[in-house]
C-alpha cells in the first residue's frame, strides 16, 4: 500500500514539474552520476520559483562533467552560479532575459555590486544589457578593478555608445594592457575618450557614428 502511494506521489510530482525543467535536466542523463544529477536537479528546482533559469545551471554542471570534475565540485559550482543568477534576477527585475541574467551573474562574480546592475536597469529599462554586463566582467578578468570597470561601462552606456563599440572598447583596453598600461588607467582613459567622442557625435572608437540611447 505504501509503495503504491509513493509511486503515485512520484508520478504526480513528475506530472507537476514543468516540461521545460524536465527537458533541461534530461541533458544531464549519462553525463553525471545519479547522486550528482539529483543534487543538481534539486538546485534547479529550488531556484525556479525565484525566476532563475535552469539552462545556465545545467550548462555549468555539464562543463564540470566534461572537465572531469568530481560531483561535490560540480554541485558547489552550480550552487554558486544559482546564487549569482538569483541576485542578478533581483537586481535586473522580472523582465530580464536569460542572457542578461547570465551576463549579470558573471558581472556579480567578477565583483560588480548589485547596485551597479540596478542602476543599469533603472537607467535603461528597455535596452538589452548583455553586452555592458559582459564587458564589465571581461574587464575585471583582465585586471581592472570592479569599481573602475563598472564606472567605465556606465560612462560609455550613458554616452550612448552601441554594443559593438562597447566590445571595441574592451578590446582597446586589452591591447593597452598587453602593451604595458596599468589596467585601471587604460579602462578609464579609453572610457573617457570613447564617451567624449560618442557625446560629440563624431565617429566612435569603432569608427562608427554612435546612436545615443534614449533615457
Amino acid at each position: 500500500m505504501n509503495a503504491r502511494i509513493l509511486a503515485l506521489a512520484a508520478a504526480l510530482a513528475a506530472f507537476a514539474r514543468p516540461p521545460e525543467a524536465t527537458a533541461q535536466t534530461e541533458r544531464l542523463a549519462g553525463r553525471l552520476d545519479e547522486r550528482t544529477r539529483a543534487a543538481v536537479e534539486a538546485i534547479v528546482d529550488s531556484v525556479r520559483g525565484a525566476g532563475v533559469p535552469g539552462d545556465p545551471l545545467v550548462n555549468k554542471a555539464l562543463e564540470g562533467a566534461s572537465k572531469g570534475a568530481d560531483g561535490a565540485r560540480i554541485v558547489a559550482a552550480v550552487r554558486a552560479l544559482a546564487t549569482n543568477l538569483a541576485r542578478a534576477r533581483a537586481a535586473l527585475g522580472a523582465g530580464a532575459t536569460e542572457p542578461e541574467l547570465v551576463a549579470g551573474a558573471a558581472a556579480l562574480r567578477a565583483g560588480a555590486s548589485a547596485v551597479f546592475l540596478e542602476r543599469l536597469r533603472a537607467d535603461f529599462p528597455r535596452e538589452p544589457l548583455v553586452v555592458p554586463l559582459a564587458v564589465m566582467a571581461d574587464l575585471v578578468a583582465r585586471g581592472v578593478q570592479p569599481d573602475t570597470a563598472a564606472q567605465s561601462v556606465l560612462t560609455l552606456v550613458k554616452a550612448g555608445v552601441r554594443e559593438a563599440d562597447l566590445v571595441a572598447f574592451r578590446q582597446s583596453v586589452e591591447r593597452d594592457i598587453a602593451l604595458g598600461a596599468p589596467a585601471g588607467a587604460a579602462a578609464t582613459a579609453r572610457a573617457a575618450s570613447a564617451g567624449g567622442l560618442a557625446t560629440t557625435g563624431v565617429p566612435s572608437i569603432a569608427g562608427q557614428t554612435p546612436h545615443p540611447r534614449k533615457p
Binding site: A103, A164, E174
Partner: peptide
C-alpha cells in the same frame, strides 16, 4: 579571448560575447 572570471573546475575557460548584429 577574455578569460572567464574564476575557473570552477581547474581548467581554462574563455568567454565570447555576441552583440546583436556583431
Amino acid at each position: 579571448a577574455p578569460r572567464a572570471v574564476g575557473d570552477d573546475f581547474g581548467q581554462p575557460t574563455s568567454v565570447v560575447t555576441v552583440a546583436a548584429g556583431a
